[in-house]
């Protein structure tokens, strides 16, 4: 299995989350899995401008000159994507969300309603599975965790894949690795 860890920690002053992800990468590697980590805060990823250029002008390629190509290649290389960030205001970080917005070139503009609900067709034959990893805030409650899971489940559905896990850093990296690899 090849895993892509998308590190959406926007606060380098808090080393706990980065250290947890490094430990997770080591556990996965030791189990024989391929691991690629993208530290999103170090990448040049501009906001999606909603121009639809990636659908209607240069199909599959974002019009913005940034590192979206590296992100898309890494996404398509992986079997499972770990959407990882501390919770900020009760949801994944804005940095991680900005990166998720930049994934829409993997979709076609055309709408597929065969499931009884609209979503876009995939541009590629491959759809990696998604997992979410979060670090609680001091005031996180179960409702925040449920909302986070619900939103990313919707995103997975509309990316023609599934959310296989939504996990907290309160469990060990070995448990997270097991959940991701066995899903």
């Amino acid at each position: 299995m090849n895993a892509l860890l998308m590190n959406g920690n926007s606060n380098p002053a808090d080393p706990r989350f980065d250290a947890y992800l490094q430990s997770l990468a080591q556990v996965l590697t030791a189990q024989g899995h391929g691991v690629n980590t993208l530290e999103l805060r170090s990448m040049d990823l501009r906001q999606c401008s909603g121009c639809f250029g990636c659908w209607l002008k240069t199909p599959g390629v974002c019009a913005t000159q940034d590192q979206h190509g590296q992100l898309l290649r890494a996404y398509l290389d992986a079997d499972v994507i770990v959407l990882a960030s501390p919770l900020v205001l009760g949801f994944s970080s804005g940095l991680l969300k900005r990166a998720a917005d930049k994934l829409i070139p993997i979709l076609l503009p055309y709408i597929d309603a065969s499931s009884g609900e609209c979503r876009h067709f995939l541009r590629y034959s491959k759809a990696p599975r998604l997992a979410v990893l979060y670090q609680d805030e001091p005031d996180t409650v179960d409702e925040d965790r449920a909302i986070t899971r619900e939103i990313w489940s919707r995103m997975a559905r509309n990316a023609n894949t599934s959310l296989v896990a939504c996990l907290s850093t309160t469990i060990t990296t070995t448990e997270v690795a097991h959940a991701i690899a066995c899903a």
Binding site: C48, V88, L89, G94
Partner: peptide, 20 residues
Amino acid sequence: FPLYTDAMPGLVKEFLEQVA
């Protein structure tokens, strides 16, 4: 805001994080 990948655009989330 418009719905972007099933939630607020990253732009909006990052703005809210600044507001907070």
